[in-house]
Write a protein that binds this DNA or RNA. Structure first.
Length: 570
RNA sequence: CGGGACGUGGCGCAGCUUGGUAGCGCGCAUCGUUCGGGACGAUGAGGCCGUCGGUUCGAAUCCGACCGUCCCGACCA
């Protein structure tokens, strides 16, 4: 491609509404333009990168036996009603009505549709299967953000596996896990695979692939000593036991005028340190008022609460609902003596005594609380959010907690969809058994953005070679110089003839502009051709990633380009 | 959904407080001088000031409603 003919609208200044680096660089580099909140046009450069990502995805999924499909984006609402997800995913579902008045769902994901096709799998002999497609997804995110990192319309590679039993699922799951590691390596990202919550997918076990990034929206806990890694939504730790050797043994109410928070009570005369308080939260779980008890210095992990109770609609109670349930305001709440209300207690409170908590009367607290003796706990659960520095649950090492971008997620779905949609095969003995499913997703545009977050410098994008929209840019310093034009055109033709994607910068611009643009858009190898070098019979190579420059004889240039690209690209 | 900010040529912004019909930088076009790291000069094109309504002799500017975008939070495979 000749740059003079290409549509590569680079910008000198950062777009006003971009915050994330990948967002700024994608817009400035002429890769994308925004159409509306969370919806972007892919410009020619962006589309080339997108195709490169998809090619990698195809290669790696084909390599583990995947068969590519293309399922529709328009889904009849009825199928979503059958699995109940029209309800459980309603917050992000986009839908429309056709001219007959029938409700159509715009594909947010494709479990339902692949499962529908899979009803034609009728014998164990048909299994296992690994099906996938790369298709548009629509999700009405309440708050799209950070350019391509969180959008409402995007491309996803989603695969689905179908097996006779869970052992088969485990194998396909592991195979995907390995394929995903290769994929993200090729996409230029260091990923950590973490245990995660399956959320609304209806599965039992899932693994997320996370890339560390300050703009990431998920937090993960990673052990420094072993391979334990988990999303904060499921992460646990082993806390050192606390000896409750001080304070009152028996229940004792005391006035605490003005005390509203855990911190207030810590500094109140006769109060207690946070770790020796019981924090009482009031939640509505699918409408049912529920008390959630935590150690005073611990925070609730709402996803754990949702997962552990199987509740879909989880929210903190409003002040008026709290007052109605407990007769007091936040700041003086407690579970001692409470009856008729479900009480969920975090494991960290097990066996604790001589604790302090609210008395369900404003400005009054109670101490000497023995949890087992004084509180009617309905259920003990792991509900707290762990923190950086806590001991690893598996080896006792130190856990590090940091933000990350979720670039892939794989799920063991089990038989949820088989049961909802009637998927079964006959086994060897002629008995109908439900098909065991797995699903595996990678967001294409998010991967592009995440790769940039991990591969850039102050001058612009530094593409991994495989992702680069062009592998080489030939910068013609003086396009008006006949010799330069001739040498650059010959080199361009030879490289293109050898199957290499080359951008020939023949624009009538000053060299500085061309260098800056080439670095901004992140082309891995720049070949500078100008009178100065040609006098000595050489052209100049500059590697984008390292900045290393070298003079190359004109006759050696083609071979040197191939050598540079060889490790990854033909 | 709650809180905050913003909406003015393609991009980035000023003007609004104190109403009088729009300006700067970049980019764009033409010409000239330049040309190995975002050149300089000259000339020029380009704007329903988000939309609708109100106040006023007169609204980018004041008032109201709506729409849109971003940020924080809630939410989210």
């Amino acid at each position: 491609m000749r740059w003079s003919q290409a549509f590569i609208p680079t910008l000198r200044e950062d777009p006003a509404d971009a915050e994330a680096i990948s967002h700024k660089l994608l817009v400035r580099g002429g890769y994308i333009r925004q159409l509306m909140a969370g919806v972007y046009s892919m410009l020619p450069l962006g589309q080339r990168v997108r195709e490169n990502v998809m090619a990698i995805l195809r290669e790696e999924i084909d390599a583990i036996g995947g068969q590519e499909f293309l399922l529709p984006q328009l889904h009849p609402a009825a199928i979503w009603e059958e699995t109940g997800r029209i309800e459980t995913m309603k917050d992000i579902l986009m839908s429309l009505e056709d001219n007959k008045g029938a409700r159509i769902v715009l594909s947010p994901t494709h479990e339902e549709i692949f499962a529908t096709v899979a009803t034609e799998l009728t014998s164990y002999k048909h299994l296992p299967q690994l099906w996938y497609h790369i298709q548009t997804k629509f999700r009405d995110e309440a708050r799209p953000k950070s350019g391509l990192l969180r959008v409402r319309e995007f491309t996803m590679k989603d695969s689905y596996t179908f097996d006779v039993d869970f052992a088969g699922l485990d194998e396909q799951f592991d195979r995907h896990h390995e394929a995903y590691k290769r994929i993200f390596d090729r996409l230029g990202m260091d990923v950590v695979a973490v245990r995660a919550s399956s959320g609304a997918m209806g599965g039992k076990e899932s693994v997320e692939f996370m890339v560390r990034s300050a703009v990431g929206e998920d937090e993960i806990a990673v052990c420094a000593s072993c391979d334990y890694a988990a999303n904060l939504e499921t992460a646990t730790s082993t806390l050192p036991p606390i000896m409750d050797s001080e304070g009152a043994r028996e229940l004792e109410r005391f006035d605490t005028p003005g005390v509203r928070t855990i911190a207030d009570l810590e500094f109140f005369d006769g109060g207690a340190e946070a770790a020796r308080q019981i924090k009482t939260l009031v939640y509505l779980l699918d409408g049912e008022v529920t008390l959630v008890l935590l150690r005073g210095d611990h925070g609730l992990q709402e996803q754990k609460l949702s997962d552990a109770t199987g509740s879909i609609d989880v929210r903190a109670a409003r002040p008026d609902e709290i007052a109605e349930a407990l007769g007091a305001d936040p700041g003086s709440l407690g579970a001692v003596g409470v009856e008729g209300i479900r009480v969920l207690a975090d494991e960290a409170l097990r066996g604790r005594s001589r604790m302090t908590t609210g008395a369900n009367r404003n400005d009054v607290h109670v101490r000497g609380v023995d949890v087992a003796r004084d509180i009617a706990v309905t259920e003990w659960l792991d509900l707290r959010t762990i923190e950086s520095g806590e001991p690893c649950p598996e080896c006792g090492g130190v856990l590090d907690v940091y933000p990350s971008i979720e670039v892939g997620h794989i799920f063991k779905l089990g038989t949820f969809y088989a049961e909802k949609l009637g998927l079964s095969v006959l086994d060897e003995s002629g008995r109908a058994v439900p098909i065991v499913m797995g699903s595996y997703g990678i967001g294409v545009e998010r991967s592009i953005a995440a790769s940039i977050e991990a591969n850039h410098d102050e001058r612009g994008i530094v593409w991994p070679i495989e992702l680069a929209p062009y592998k080489v840019v030939i910068t013609v310093v003086r396009p008006d110089d006949e010799r330069s034009r001739q040498v650059s055109t010959e080199l361009y033709d030879e490289l293109v003839g050898g199957g290499i994607e080359v951008l020939l910068d023949d624009r009538k611009e000053r060299p500085g502009v061309k260098f800056t643009d080439a670095e901004l858009i992140g082309i891995p190898l720049r070949i500078t051709i100008g009178p100065r070098g040609l006098d000595g019979g050489i052209v100049e190579f500059v590697e984008r990633r390292t900045g290393v420059q070298s003079d190359v004889g004109i006759g050696d240039a083609v071979a040197r380009v191939h050598a540079f690209l060889e490790p990854r690209v033909v």
